[in-house]
Design a protein around this nucleic acid. Structure first.
Length: 424
RNA sequence: AGAGAGAUGGCAGAGCGGUUGAAUGCGGCGGUCUUGAAAACCGUUGAAGGUAACACUUUCGGGGGUUCGAAUCCCUCUCUCUCUACCA
């Protein structure tokens, strides 16, 4: 959520930012917010004055009662009736005004950073760098959905039987590879100074509001109606919310957390071509890194996180590229976002395996996540996160790119974790 | 799940209808003393809105109510603890 003071003081900057994000009616909503805000503040002032008057009278009555001046007390009491009515009306207006303002603010996406390129769709994203050798496979090479059948390591039919489409069952070396990747990612993050967290994978509504999954994206999450809890779409939600309503000290910063969790996404309406096999699932595993930093350090931190993620891809010997997302493709919450994609040899496609974002104060504002600056004033922090990494597409690329006539070769770094070097 | 108790500032813990945003202790910060440190002593110390700065308003788990006035009384929700039941 954008800060109201920013909108008030830098209207044009906000409008430009919204337009870069392809937000329709940017000008209109900013004007609406400003008008509502002004109304709210006028209302607030009037209410404050009314309450101050009531408080004054109440104190006076208290003193008069003590002194036994009943007549004067009764007289003062009579005066309070109209004030009471007035403050009731004002506070009702204020509430309505606040909720209208809140609603408008919830609708507004984060502003993109200056570096974010203009553009409307994924086509306009900028490839920043590419690393690793792209395999040149002929048609004899199998896509991963054939390979998992051939070696019997992931079973979609069983998943359908016990749950539904998009819930694969990993078996034998497939399950072991999955576990190996999780441990490898967690160990690498720990080495890089991240504190490992094992959060709940069901969260309440407040948490979803604070990180920006709600309002409006409820259709993307599974919901346990009886208890009003959401299954997390990413570990970002519980981990970032660990710091909701907190004021951190500078020496506690930066916060660096890593967590492995399953992630659940309904993916309503997004099924179609390109979603075969492990490419898109309702449940998948992911290791997520989260950082919380002071405002002036967040972009440096984002580079650090991006480097960490790239390091993982290099160690896994996967060809990858890094994209800088354009204004139209960047997520609602993010100010700047890098996508990391690996090349999947048999599908001959780039698959997104990570997304590292700086949210600046957008989440912190909803989270009420602040720190005390050197002047003793509380200031919003910046939140960042990135996948390090999402498992299924890594698995897909590993299987496809490392297939040989003998079987699937396991990258060196993983062998200590898998206990085998070949799936055959 | 049943019965009971409770939720107050960073923590501990008073207050139970009237200048109480809240005693006291600990912690934090500043100072005196000291070569330095500790101890002792003095001062200071929640958050949000608002203001040029004051003023002022809100906030004692959340929401609602009674009252001129609520941390204090009533209703309701949530959470925590103890006992019982159940369970990995």
């Amino acid at each position: 959520m954008l800060q109201i003071s920013l909108i008030r003081e830098h209207k044009q900057r906000v409008i430009n930012g919204l337009q870069k994000k392809n937000f329709k009616n940017a000008e209109q909503i900013v004007e609406q917010v400003c008008a509502e805000d002004e109304k709210r503040r006028e209302n607030q002032t009037e209410l404050d004055n009314t309450l101050a008057e009531s408080n004054r009278l109440a104190k006076e009555i208290g003193i008069l009662m003590k002194e036994g001046k009943k007549d004067q007390a009764a007289e003062a009491k009579a005066k309070t009736a109209s004030l009471k009515e007035k403050s009731k009306e004002l506070s009702e207006n204020l509430k309505e005004s606040e909720s209208r303002l809140q609603k408008l603010l919830y609708e507004m996406p984060n502003l993109p950073a200056d570096r974010v390129p203009a553009g409307k769709t994924a086509e306009d994203n900028v490839v920043l760098l590419q690393d690793g050798e792209i395999p040149d496979f002929d048609d004899s090479f199998l896509p991963h959905w054939e390979l998992i059948k051939k070696y019997d390591i992931v079973d979609f039919e069983l998943g359908v039987k016990i749950t539904g489409a998009g819930f694969p069952v990993y078996k034998g070396k497939g399950a072991r590879l999955q576990r190996a990747l999780i441990n490898f990612f967690l160990d690498e993050a720990t080495k890089a100074g991240y504190l490992e967290i094992q959060p709940p994978i069901l969260v309440n509504e407040e948490s979803c509001l604070a990180t920006g999954q709600l309002p409006d994206k409820e259709g993307q999450m599974y919901f346990a109606n009886e208890d009003k809890l959401y299954l997390i779409p990413t570990a970002e939600v519980p981990i970032t919310n660990l710091y909701r309503d907190t004021i951190l000290k500078v020496d506690q910063l930066p916060i660096k957390n890593v967590g492995y969790t399953p992630c659940f996404r309904r993916e309503a309406g997004s099924w179609g071509a390109h979603v075969r096999g492990l490419n898109r699932l309702h449940q998948f595993d992911k290791v997520e890194i989260v950082q919380i930093t002071q405002p002036e350090k967040s972009y440096e931190t984002l580079e650090q996180m991006s480097a960490h993620i790239q390091g993982l891809l290099k160690k896994l010997e996967l060809p990858y590229r890094v994209l800088l997302l354009c204004g139209g493709d960047i997520s609602f919450n993010a100010a700047l976002c890098y996508d990391m994609e690996v090349f999947s040899g048999a599908q001959k496609r780039w698959l997104e395996v990570s997304s590292a974002s700086n949210f600046e104060t957008f989440q912190a504002n909803r989270l009420k996540l602040r720190f005390k600056d050197e002047n003793g004033k509380s200031q919003l922090l910046h939140t960042l996160n990135g996948s390090a990494l999402a498992l299924p597409r890594i698995m897909a690329a590993l299987l496809e790119n490392n297939q040989t006539p003998e079987g699937i070769r396991i990258p060196k770094v993983l062998q200590a974790y898998t206990g085998f070097d070949l799936i055959s």
